[in-house]
Simulated scan of single mutants.
Amino acid sequence: MTGAQPAALATENLSRVYPSGEGEITALSPFTHTFAPGLTAVVGPSGSGKSTLLNLLAGFDTPSGGRVRVGDTDLHALSETGRADFRLANYGFVFQNHNLVSILSAQENVEFPLLLAGVPARERRDRARTLLDDVGLLARAGHLPHQLSGGEAQRVAIARALARDPAVLLADEPTGNLDTRTGQKVLELLTGPARQGRTVVLITHDRDVAALADHRLEVRDGVVSRGEH
């Protein structure tokens, strides 16, 4: 199937401030950046603002100021429904806890975003099986999530994230719950779309993981800076 074409992901003076009992908390200071094609690691300690940035890039949260652009689209100018439709067509997501649907098989999980997009059944099946083969899990296509190891479930989640060949792939601590060897395999799978010119943003607290990325951003106390590479 033909997916979304590579598109620039950019922020313009993007910020997020939350009210608190003592006034305001700045979770993300104004941040302007164009994410280059390839793998960008966003690294920083817990509570630094990494997740806030990811939620804003995805359109899950609303900025206090500024904007997120994917190609020519201003993400936060869209309605809530419009953002959801745009995410389905242009984004792929990989979470720390894989977030597979427990009652669906591995193949059905990969097919799910294609089902939502109205892709015909045979095309869904063929695409899902190709992706499961790519991540080395075609033999596990009929297994439910609880029948998979943590690493296998995360690989299914990556296959699902790639189902619609997204322009932007966001990964939130995808190796956080895995041992080093399994985490390395998962990381290698994320570099594939990056090498194909997609924009992959990887949130991590692990500097060893971040060191393998093409580009790196550092987040500390809500301030984003370009990390050394």
Results as ranks from 00 to 15, higher is better:
P6Q: 14
P6E: 14
G21V: 03
G21W: 02
E22G: 06
E24T: 00
T26P: 07
L28S: 01
L28V: 00
S29I: 02
S29R: 13
P30F: 07
P30S: 06
F31N: 01
F35Y: 14
P37M: 07
A41N: 04
G44V: 00
G44F: 13
G47K: 08
G49A: 09
S51P: 05
L54P: 00
L56P: 04
L57D: 09
F60D: 15
D61E: 15
P63L: 09
S64V: 05
R67I: 01
R67P: 03
V70N: 01
T73N: 12
T73V: 12
D74S: 11
H76I: 02
H76E: 12
T81H: 12
A84V: 09
F86N: 04
F86H: 05
A89R: 15
A89N: 14
F95S: 03
Q96D: 07
N97G: 06
H98E: 00
L100Q: 03
S102R: 15
E111D: 13
F112C: 08
A117G: 11
G118P: 11
R125K: 11
R127L: 05
A128P: 06
R129W: 09
R129N: 09
L132M: 08
D134I: 10
L137S: 01
L138K: 08
A139R: 14
A141P: 02
L144V: 03
L144D: 03
L144N: 00
P145Q: 09
Q147I: 10
G150N: 12
E152M: 08
R155G: 02
V156G: 04
R160E: 14
L162E: 04
L162C: 08
A163W: 03
V168A: 07
L170E: 15
D172L: 07
D179N: 15
T182A: 09
Q184K: 11
Q184R: 11
V186M: 00
L187K: 02
T191E: 11
A194D: 12
R195I: 02
G197R: 05
G197F: 12
T199K: 03
V201F: 07
T204F: 10
D206L: 12
L212N: 10
E218A: 12
R220D: 13
R220I: 06
V224I: 12
S225E: 12
E228I: 10
